[in-house]
Computed example of a mutant assay.
Amino acid sequence: MDTHTSQDAFSPNTASTRLHRALRVRMCEGDFSPGDVISIRRVAAEYGTSAMPAREAIRWLVTEGALVFSDSRKIIVPELSRERFHEVLFARKSLETQVSRQAFTHITTDDIDELRRIDTEIDEAIEQSDLLGYMRGNYRFHFHIYRRSHSRVLLPIVESLWLQYGPSMRYICTRWGASTIADDYHREVTQALSRGDIEAFCHAIAADIEQGMQLLHQVE
């Protein structure tokens, strides 16, 4: 699993920071659902660490708003209201389109080949109704592009939005079904990149995020 984030260049390589990065990626990928209880002991056991790094990583996620205390003893993945989730998607559309525009000139033919490979895996996950496979591939596809922007300002903000987006999108896709995702905007992204068409590329990124908004409207 790719656990690289924009924070890597600025964080010490300790057990707690490595665990924090791994948990951040899992949350962005939809490994957790709203309402899930996060256990320090269980996280420590899963990653083979002591309780201290797990506690520090989880507290960091609480500070970032990715997790919340439901009472003095329980840490959970928060539920986003419909209105707040819509705001997250609106912010994603604006910021990720700009990050993509900044990334455009840094994307190579090797990057395009990798994006096509990831998109093939996403298509296979959708055909198999593999929700987690779809969400993991979707995260890898988008952030393969966004990291090429080398933005120290916008990229961390985009990552924070995905921390809020991932668990709620997991819930929505569970209700709606990964196999019903109809439009392959990722293919439009790679085709625009191959043509060198920056406007079509940015439009496809925005349309892909719009699809998330359409999914939201399917859930009562």
Rank of each mutant, 00 (worst) to 15 (best):
A44V: 12
I58H: 04
W162K: 08
R148L: 04
S50Q: 11
G65W: 00
L115Y: 04
T5W: 05
A91F: 11
H86A: 15
A192N: 07
L193D: 07
I75P: 06
I118E: 03
A103F: 09
P34H: 03
V37F: 03
F141I: 05
E64G: 02
S81L: 09
A103L: 07
P12S: 07
L216Q: 06
R55E: 13
S16V: 03
R101E: 12
N138Y: 10
R152K: 12
Y134P: 00
R92G: 03
H106P: 01
H203F: 00
M135I: 01
G177I: 08
S149R: 06
I145N: 05
C173L: 08
A103V: 10
Q102H: 05
Q191Y: 10
R73G: 11
S6C: 07
A51K: 14
L216C: 04
R55T: 09
T63H: 13
R187L: 14
F32T: 02
T17N: 12
S179N: 10
N13M: 12
E124R: 15
A45V: 07
D71C: 10
V43G: 06
W176V: 14
I205R: 09
S149F: 13
M213A: 13
Y185R: 08
H4C: 05
D119I: 02
W176R: 12
E159H: 04
L163Q: 10
V219E: 11
D8N: 14
R21L: 03
A178V: 15
A182P: 00
A178Y: 02
H106W: 06
T14I: 07
F69C: 04
L163M: 09
E114L: 11
G48L: 07
P34L: 13
V25R: 13
T63N: 14
L95N: 04
S149G: 02
R147K: 11
S168I: 05
E87N: 13
P34C: 14
N13A: 10
S149V: 02
H106Y: 10
I112F: 08
H150G: 03
F201K: 13
L131C: 01
A45K: 15
A15W: 01
F104A: 06
V25F: 04
S72A: 15
T190G: 07
V68A: 06
S81F: 10
I198F: 03
G65Q: 06
A54H: 00
H144K: 09
L161Q: 10
I198V: 15
I157H: 05
R41C: 01
Q211Y: 15
G65H: 07
D36H: 13
D8W: 05
F143V: 09
R24I: 01
E127P: 00
L216H: 08
L19Q: 05
E124T: 01
D71S: 13
A178S: 12
R42K: 12
C28M: 15
L215R: 13
L163D: 10
V77K: 07
G177R: 04
V43D: 03
D119F: 00
S179Y: 14
S151C: 11
S11N: 11
I76M: 12
R84L: 07
R136V: 12
R147L: 02
F85W: 09
